[in-house]
Each structure stands twice: as structure tokens, then as C-alpha cells.
Design a binder for these strands. Structure first.
Lengths: 150, 150
DNA sequence: TATTGTTATACTCTATAACTATA
DNA sequence: TATAGTTATAGAGTATAACAATA
């Protein structure tokens, strides 16, 4: 009686993993992030840097603590990012009007100029990454994702 | 003339970031992963371990290289995961029937038993993480995410 | 007593180069 | 010559503990 050979796999069946929300969200996020890294490298922004400076852009005077809470970043990990943005003269710290412990963060003129370009690039890469989605589908996708994390 | 005080932020405006697909996908993924880590810790599985052993479960005889391609993992980073699963006696390596360089990966009886429980837990945490979504919405979400990364 | 910002540091995850055995 | 699996290691990302200054 011949030994039974162990089976080998022709095409990998991924249907089970593709039924899991975390798997799908993570794979899609990594795909968009890869495009982001490529196109935003010219600005010296990783996704987290862009999130930080974007919140400063739309919330002049925001504090480190507020950034941490909004982006779910730990305070020690934000310090180096803020330092780098300040050394690049894209942002400045101003004393907080009512809390002597805190600093308010603001864009410089250079920062404002750079962010105008960066947000255009972000919008373009967004379109590219989601090119197989209609505008309605993209809106719907955002709403469904926000139902999970907000 | 009094010095103008810098503005401070009351509630953080995150609408711009929430218009970006990568941001939404990443935030949702991290939320689901946090729930995953909590509930799957009893099995000793991180998300990537579960993805690996799940593909072995549904693809008996799959090779390391096929796992790397399917999950977008680099070969050096897979080695320790496979070693750990083998040392836990959840999987075994068998010689590949047609390629002397490769091994086919298979669940042991112990592995099969554990995976039955683990997939039930995964299904439960999936429901919990997406409890604000209807079955239709979850299906729709998966389809939209797959349009991005597949 | 609690909070903001910070330093130092440990831990995990991801990436690159190079080797061996076989195709 | 190319590929599967592996080793060693570097780099990036994420986490905890503890401190000074201010609320």
C-alpha cells in the first residue's frame, strides 16, 4: 500500500479572513498608507506627522494633550514629532492663554504654505487609492468605519 | 493697545482627517485589533498569528512562501511565528510532495481543536466590534475595503 | 492631589542583507 | 540562475515609569 502524500495548495483560499472586519480594515489601511508614504515623502510627513500638523492647521492653539486625545497617541511619543515640526519651522509654540503648564501650537507662514500643498497632495492620493470607489461609496465607507471607531 | 492673546481650542475639529480613507481605515482597524488582542489573548494569538494559523487551517499543506504572499509578510518575519506554532504543537511541517525546498504546513489534532474555539471567539469579537452595523452594512463595508486592497 | 509636558528606556514590529539547499 | 527557508541585525513604532512645573 503506497504512502499517502500530504496535500499541496494550488491557490490560497482567503475567504475566511476576508469575512473579518479587522483583517479587511487593516489590509486596506496598509494599502492606502503605502501610497501615502510614497506621495507625501516630498513633504517629509509620515501619516502620523500629517495627522498632527493637520489638526494644528484646523485647530490653531491646540495643545499636545488635545492632540494626544484626538489621535490616540501617547504623550511621550508626541514630543519628538512636535520638536521636529518646530525645528523645521512649520509650527510654533505660544504660551497657552489660560493654562501655564500648556503650550498652544500654531502654524508658521512657512507651515501654512506647505500645508496648502500637502493637503492637495493628500486629496490626490486619496482619489488614487480609492479610484475603484464612487464618491457615494467612499462617503459610505467613511460612515461605516466611523461607526466602528467613533 | 492690549496684546492679542493666542486662541485656545475648546473642542477639537477632526472633520478634515475624517474625510480621509486611510485615516478612517487605520482608526477602525486599531479599534478592532484592540478588542482582538483582549479576547484572543487566552489562545496566545496576536492578529498575525491568527491570520497565519487560519490560512493553514483552511489551506492544509500551504507553504511559508504562500503564507507570505497571501498576508504580505516578509519571509524572515514569518520564521519565528511558524516556529512558535510548531513548538506549541499546533502545527507540523511535512515534506512538500513536489518541491524538496519547501515544507507543507498542517494543523495537528491539538491545533484543530484550538482553532475550532478560536474561530468562534473571533466570530464573537467580530460581532462585538461591529455591533453598530447591520449584517448588510458589515458585508458592504468588507466589499468596499476589498475594492481598495484586492 | 491631579494634570501638562518631558526624559529615559524597554519592547514590539518591520525591513534589509546574506547564507544554504534545492529547482 | 532563481527560489524556499533561514539567520542576524538594523530601524521604526509603541509602551511604561518617573520627574518638574503648574492647576
Amino acid at each position: 500500500m503506497p504512502e499517502k502524500l500530504p496535500p499541496s495548495v494550488d491557490t490560497v483560499d482567503t475567504t475566511y479572513l476576508e469575512s473579518l472586519t479587522g483583517y479587511n480594515a487593516q489590509r486596506a489601511a496598509l494599502k492606502v498608507i503605502a501610497i501615502f508614504l510614497d506621495r507625501m515623502a516630498v513633504y517629509g510627513f509620515r501619516p502620523v506627522d500629517f495627522s498632527v500638523i493637520s489638526l494644528i492647521t484646523h485647530n490653531p492653539g491646540i495643545t499636545s494633550r488635545q492632540l494626544c486625545a484626538a489621535l490616540d497617541i501617547l504623550p511621550p511619543n508626541l514630543v519628538a514629532m512636535i520638536d521636529t515640526l518646530e525645528r523645521r519651522e512649520l509650527i510654533v509654540r505660544k504660551p497657552h492663554p489660560r493654562d501655564g503648564r500648556a503650550f498652544g501650537l500654531h502654524l508658521t507662514t512657512t507651515g501654512k504654505k506647505l500645508m496648502r500643498d500637502a493637503e492637495i497632495t493628500a486629496s490626490e492620493l486619496e482619489s488614487h487609492a480609492t479610484q475603484r470607489l464612487s464618491a457615494t461609496e467612499r462617503k459610505s465607507l467613511h460612515r461605516l468605519l466611523q461607526k466602528i471607531y467613533l
